[in-house]
Computed example of a mutant assay.
Amino acid sequence: MPKQRITKEMVVSAAFEIARAEGMEQVMAKTIAAKIGCSVQPIYSYCKNMAGLRQDVAAQAGNFIREYAAKHVDKNDLFRSTGKAYIRLAEEEPHLFKIFILHQRQGISSLQDLYEAEAGAHTAEFIADSLDISISQARQLHMHMLVYTIGLGAIFSVTTPGIPIEEIYAQQEQAYEAFFCASHSAAMPRTFKEGFFNGT
C-alpha cells in the first residue's frame, strides 16, 4: 500500500475538527496524528509550533462562523437576526464560539477599535437606513449589541445543563429595546428629552 502523503491542509483540517468537537485545548500533535492516522513527525514538519497551528484553526473557525451567520440571517430583519444567529451558534457550536471569543485580537486599545475590527465597513450605514436613525446612533447601537451579544453567547456556551435559548433571545431583545431607546434619548434636545420622559 502506498504511503499516505500528509499535507498542511490535512493537518489544519484535522486540527479544526478536533477543536470543533473537543475544544482548542485538545489540538495537539498526538491528537492530530491520531485523527489523520499517521505519526507525529509529519505534524511537526508542517507546524513549527502549536501557536501557529492554532492561529490557522482560529482563522478557519472565523470563516466557518461568517458562513454560518450568512446562512441564518433574515434579510428582512438583518440586525436582530444576526444577533440571534450568534446565540444559535453558541448553542450548536460552543467550542467554535469560544474560539471566536477568546482568540487574540491585535491592535485593540478601546471598544471603538474592537467595533471597527468586528463590524463590516458599511454595517452602521445599513442599520441607520433600516431603523431610520443617524449613522452615529447606529454605530453606538451596534457596538452596544455586539458587546452584549458576545457576553450573552459566552454565558450560554459555558453553562450546563443550559439556559433555554428562548430566555436568551428574550434578554437580547430587552437589551436591544433599551439600547435603541437610549440612542434616541441621547439625540434629543434636553428640553424635549425631559418632557418626553416626564410624559409631558
Rank of each mutant, 00 (worst) to 15 (best):
M1W: 10
Q4K: 14
K8P: 00
V11D: 00
V11Q: 01
A15L: 07
F16A: 04
I18W: 06
R20V: 06
A21Y: 05
E22A: 08
V27M: 10
M28L: 15
M28T: 14
M28D: 07
I36R: 02
I36K: 00
V40N: 08
Y46N: 14
N49M: 07
M50E: 05
A51F: 02
R54L: 08
V57L: 12
A58R: 06
G62M: 03
G62P: 03
N63V: 14
R66Q: 15
Y68Q: 03
A69F: 12
K71D: 15
K71Y: 09
H72D: 07
V73E: 11
D74V: 03
K75G: 14
L78M: 10
S81H: 11
G83A: 02
L89P: 02
L89H: 03
E91K: 12
E92G: 10
P94A: 11
H95A: 11
K98Q: 15
I101E: 12
I101W: 11
L102S: 09
H103E: 13
G107S: 09
S109C: 07
S110G: 10
L111E: 12
Q112R: 10
L114Q: 10
E116P: 05
A119W: 08
G120M: 09
E125G: 13
D129Y: 03
S130R: 13
D132K: 14
S134K: 07
A138Q: 03
R139M: 07
Q140H: 14
M143S: 08
M143T: 15
V147F: 05
Y148M: 03
T149K: 00
G151T: 12
G151C: 04
F156Q: 01
S157M: 06
T160I: 04
G162K: 09
P164I: 08
I165M: 10
E166S: 12
I168E: 00
A178P: 04
A178I: 05
F179Q: 04
F180C: 04
F180Y: 15
S183G: 04
A186D: 15
M188V: 02
R190M: 14
R190W: 07
T191W: 01
F192R: 06
K193F: 10
K193Y: 11
F196K: 00
N198F: 00
T200Y: 03
